[in-house]
Amino acid sequence: MQIFVKTLTGKTITSEVEPSDTIENVKAKIQDKEGIPPDQQRLIFAGKQLEDGRTLSDYNIQKESTLHLVLR
């Protein structure tokens, strides 16, 4: 499924993921596309910071959901 990751600069990254993918996994995909190390990434969805060990389905993230990427 496709999800969108919006950066603070307003850029939107499209990523191909599975509901069973972990947040860590998603951060790795963002690193592949943007070159941002996962340890600098914080992903936010519905006002919550997403934890690395959890999966997209844990957070009820569905296709075409938009996550927000904040850098630390």
Rank of each mutant, 00 (worst) to 15 (best):
F4I: 08
S15L: 15
P38F: 13
D52T: 05
T12L: 13
S65W: 03
T22M: 07
V5G: 01
G10F: 03
L8R: 11
E51P: 02
T9C: 15
D58A: 04
N60K: 09
L69F: 03
E64H: 14
L8C: 15
P37G: 05
A28F: 12
S15A: 15
T12S: 06
Q40C: 12
D39E: 13
Q40D: 10
L56C: 01
M1E: 03
Q62S: 10
R72A: 13
T66A: 04
H68I: 15
T22W: 04
Y59C: 01
E16C: 14
S57E: 11
R54A: 08
I61W: 01
S20K: 08
D21W: 13
Q31V: 06
L71K: 06
P37C: 07
E34R: 05
K48R: 11
I30H: 01
T66M: 09
N60I: 03
G53F: 11
Q2T: 15
R72N: 12
F4K: 08
T55F: 06
L71F: 08
T22I: 04
P19C: 06
L56V: 09
D21G: 03
G47S: 04
A28M: 14
E51K: 09
T12D: 03
G35S: 05
G10K: 04
I30R: 00
A46F: 10
E16N: 11
K29W: 13
F4Q: 05
V5F: 08
E24S: 12
K11A: 09
N60Y: 06
S15W: 14
L8Q: 14
G10Q: 03
N25I: 14
L50Q: 01
F4C: 05
T55G: 02
S15Y: 15
L67S: 00
F4G: 02
D52K: 04
Q49I: 15
T12G: 03
S57V: 07
G10R: 04
P37A: 09
T55C: 04
L69T: 02
K63L: 06
E16F: 13
Q49T: 14
Q40I: 11
K33N: 07
I30G: 02
L67E: 00
F4D: 03
V70T: 08
T12F: 09
N60V: 04
N25W: 10
M1L: 06
I30N: 01
G47K: 04
Y59F: 04
F4H: 10
G53V: 07
R72V: 14
T14F: 09
K29I: 12
D58W: 12
L43Q: 00
K6A: 07
T66V: 14
T14A: 09
Q40S: 09
L8D: 11
V70L: 13
Y59S: 02
D32S: 12
S65M: 10
L43G: 00
T66N: 04
T22Y: 08
K27T: 03
L67A: 01
F45H: 07
G47Q: 04
T12K: 08
T66E: 07
I3H: 01
T9V: 08
K29C: 04
L71H: 07
Q41T: 09
S65L: 03
Q2L: 14
E51V: 08
E24L: 14
I3D: 02
I13C: 04
A46V: 06
K27N: 01
L67Y: 00
S15M: 15
P38G: 09
K11S: 07
E34C: 15
N60T: 04
N25F: 11
K48V: 14
L56Y: 02
S20R: 08
E18V: 13
K29P: 00
L67Q: 01
I30Q: 00
P37V: 05
R54F: 12
D52Y: 04
I30L: 08
K11Y: 12
I23A: 02
H68C: 11
L69R: 00
P38K: 15
S57P: 02
E18S: 14
K33H: 10
I13F: 12
R42I: 15
K11P: 05
P19R: 07
V17F: 12
G53L: 08
E24W: 15
K27Y: 06
I36H: 08
N60R: 07
K6C: 13
I3P: 00
D58V: 03
M1G: 04
F45Q: 02
K33R: 10
L71Y: 09
Q49C: 14
G53I: 07
V5P: 01
K63Y: 07
K11G: 07
T9G: 13
Q40L: 11
I13E: 02
G53N: 12
K48N: 10
L50I: 03
Q41C: 09
K6F: 06
V26G: 00
M1W: 09
D39K: 10
E24V: 07
I30S: 02
S20A: 08
N60H: 09
L71Q: 09
L69W: 00
D58R: 01
R72W: 12
F4A: 04
N25H: 12
K63S: 15
M1Q: 04
K48P: 01
A28E: 09
L71R: 08
M1Y: 14
Q41M: 15
I3A: 01
S57I: 08
E24C: 09
E16M: 13
D58Q: 07
A46Q: 15
V26H: 00
E16S: 11
I44Y: 15
L67R: 00
D21N: 06
I36Q: 03
V70F: 12
L56N: 01
D32T: 11
G47E: 04
A28H: 11
I3V: 05
E64C: 11
Y59G: 00
K33V: 12
N25P: 02
T9W: 15
F4Y: 13
I13R: 01
V17I: 05
I3M: 02
V5N: 01
V70W: 09
T14H: 07
G10S: 03
T22Q: 04
R42A: 10
E18T: 14
A46Y: 08
Q2G: 06
L8F: 13
D52H: 06
L50E: 01
A28W: 11
G47C: 07
L71W: 08
L71E: 08
H68Y: 15
L67P: 01
E64G: 15
I36G: 03
L50R: 00
T22N: 04
A28I: 13
A28Q: 13
K29S: 07
I23D: 00
F45Y: 11
L8W: 15
I61D: 01
G10D: 04
S20W: 14
E18G: 08
L8A: 13
F45S: 03
T14D: 04
I61H: 01
H68A: 06
K63P: 15
E18R: 14
L56S: 00
L69G: 01
K29A: 07
T22L: 11
L67G: 00
I61S: 01
T12A: 04
S57Y: 10
Y59T: 02
K33Y: 09
I13N: 02
V17H: 13
Q2E: 09
Q31G: 11
T14P: 07
E51A: 08
I36E: 02
D21Q: 05
P19T: 07
I3G: 02
T7R: 08
G47W: 04
K11W: 09
T9I: 07
S20L: 08
L43S: 00
P38L: 14
G47P: 01
K29G: 06
R42N: 12
S20G: 11
P37M: 07
T55R: 10
S57R: 12
D21C: 05
I30M: 03
P37H: 10
E16I: 14
G47L: 03
K27W: 04
V26A: 02
G53R: 09
Q2F: 13
S65K: 04
L43E: 01
V26T: 02
Q31D: 05
E18F: 14
K27F: 06
Q31M: 13
R72I: 15
F4M: 06
Q2N: 11
E64T: 05
L71M: 10
L43W: 01
E18H: 14
